[in-house]
Design a protein around this nucleic acid. Structure first.
Lengths: 334, 334
DNA sequence: ATTTTTCATGAAAGCGTTTTCTACACTTGC
DNA sequence: GCAAGTGTAGAAAACGCTTTCATGAAAAAT
């Protein structure tokens, strides 16, 4: 019962028209007499014709596919962005080729190349670090690209994110207002601009405003895993540090659970604020006070921006900053 | 500085050979003299030639792309499967087009059609319910497909999962052994075979073995959200139910947090076992005792199976069942 | 030295569309 | 009644590759 692939030519023959006409009705071109259109559509239904997107792509030089480079789908933060991206993409009839990069420079180059080979119409890049090589590749290719949930520190690429400096400053200020003087800054690698440049700047800014001297020893640079948070908790326990700002939720959850497991009362003895407001932040007990980010929207807006870029529309501001919030939950005093 | 797209023809001209030869070296065909190969490769590097995958796809009738239908990337369970799929896919040089279906029948049909239009070489389907219409479409298409993390109850489609009947029975038995007599069965829609058919059967089996009579009132059918779990907790609180089996981790986390927030001590006053062993299960306190599933592997094996199908290799057993475990953590007594 | 094999390569026909150009048959407008 | 438009449609050339078939040269066999 295996049906042969039916092509536009089959439809044309069966409907007694040329391929060009079939193509016109399939693509909604108005230059077709209603009666003809009807007839063609009937044949399409009858034969169950489905246009070959690959052939279409070759002929039109558009693949209606966009590439998404994501560090790890398994990470709730990126998954939320991805969901926003996908929803808007399908709204605009684009499909998504997703590639996990593990934030690995080499892999990023590799997937970028396969995406370009696949003739994607645009690319959304998630990741916290951009090597010069990668940036070079971006700018050389005529394929539009936008960063979602991160900023290129050279601002050479359109991006959508929140203001990491201000939000961090606000979080740290809150910690200070609640009486904390020794506040740890916990994040992933400081070589990533989001940590080493923006968040750290916000942290310092808050300290400065409060007249607190910056202390190098309060900076804890690690990776983004839950386990690292647990480990960090043991280190934190025997110091006079009374609060921490964390750049990642899983990391923060690790710190929180580690602290609690060791008998430290949060928030009474230790206050904690995290950054991404993923579901994790609300699943743990006590619930993590967090900077809130419109994760889904960041993804959605990125994709929307990309559609404009692909249509060669004029963009007034390529670096879009979305509003953030600060949700006081249970790991801070009030 | 915009470089024109360089085609195979440009390379051929520059290297003084025919397109056929360039094609051969690009595809690793051995019928090329080493010297010629060298020369062509040099030109490829020099011109920075990158084969157009779309044209390739049209000519070869292979897209080296597979479609992945996922209910929601944002769900840790599916995201883990997806990660396994993607890793194996890239190992075999396939790219992935990912489509969120929201387990919506109509949307599933739609994305299936766009995937087929894009000429994917294979499809991996995640989702708990398969409509007849969809199954029909599957069997009519010559594109191989495999189910990941779910079984088609008609077993007409190759699939990879764990034994849901046995694992559930084991979990419920444990609850019974620890002295619980009234054990709630909490799951998503019973219309989904995984719940209404397999897990429920396991639940009944365990009860029967212990000589406990099945009680309809202990079945709680809801959706998979954390919020529903919270709500359910209030209902559960004022009954004589002392334990529950939950078919989903977020749901279980909701029940757990809801119970705890209302002063019910877990596991002393209420025991709880969940099913998917996503990260959530270990983030909450107390940590959720859970059936453990090799999530990443389920995805990986599915993809591997799909590669075999795409190569038209003989498959001995199209329904693969992977081993599960039962990890006693803190929401059961021992 | 001649025939047969093997090897390396080129020519050209697809693959299934889109799109440009051309053409024809009608309407209009005057 | 004729020139100029205006829809509607077809022919055919791309699009950038893979692949089959043919071919000539070199190697091997006789």
């Amino acid at each position: 019962m295996e049906k042969q692939t039916v092509t536009i030519y089959d439809v044309a023959r069966e409907a007694g028209v040329s391929m060009a006409t079939v193509s016109r009705v399939v693509n909604g071109n108005q230059n077709v007499k209603p009666a003809t259109r009807q007839r063609v559509n009937d044949v399409i239904d009858k034969l169950d014709y489905r246009p070959n997107a690959v052939a279409r792509g070759l002929a039109s030089k558009k693949s209606t596919t966009i590439g998404v480079i994501i560090p790890d789908v398994t990470n709730g933060y990126f998954a939320s962005l991805a969901r926003g991206i996908d929803d808007v993409a399908s709204m605009y009839k684009y499909n998504i080729i997703m590639e996990n990069s593990d934030e690995n420079d080499q892999k990023e180059m590799l997937v970028l190349n396969t995406l370009l080979a696949k003739q994607v119409d645009g690319i959304i890049f998630m990741g916290n670090r951009v090597t010069d090589k990668l940036r070079d590749e971006f700018s050389h290719s005529r394929t539009p690209i936008v960063f979602a949930g991160s900023v290129d520190d050279q601002e050479s690429v359109p991006s959508v994110s929140i203001d990491y400096v201000e939000s961090t400053a606000e979080a740290v200020s809150k910690l200070i207002k609640e009486g904390n003087k020794k506040i740890a800054f916990i994040s992933g690698s400081l070589s990533e601009p989001i940590n080493g440049k923006y968040r750290l700047a916000g942290y310092k800014q808050a300290l400065k405003e409060a007249g607190i001297k910056f202390d190098e020893k309060l900076i804890f640079e690690t990776d983004y895993s839950y386990e690292s948070g647990i480990k960090l908790a043991s280190q934190l326990k025997d110091t006079d540090i009374t609060a921490a700002f964390a750049g990642d939720d899983r990391l923060a959850a690790g710190v929180l659970n580690g602290l609690t497991d060791q008998g430290v009362k949060v928030p009474d003895q230790f206050a904690l604020i995290t950054s991404n407001d993923t579901q994790v932040a609300q699943l743990v007990r006590p619930q993590l006070t967090s900077i809130t980010q419109p994760l889904y929207d960041i993804g959605a807006v990125s994709m929307r921006l990309l559609t404009k870029l692909m249509n060669k529309e004029e963009i007034d501001e390529p670096t879009i900053t979305l509003p953030y919030g600060l949700d006081s939950r249970e790991t801070t005093k009030k």
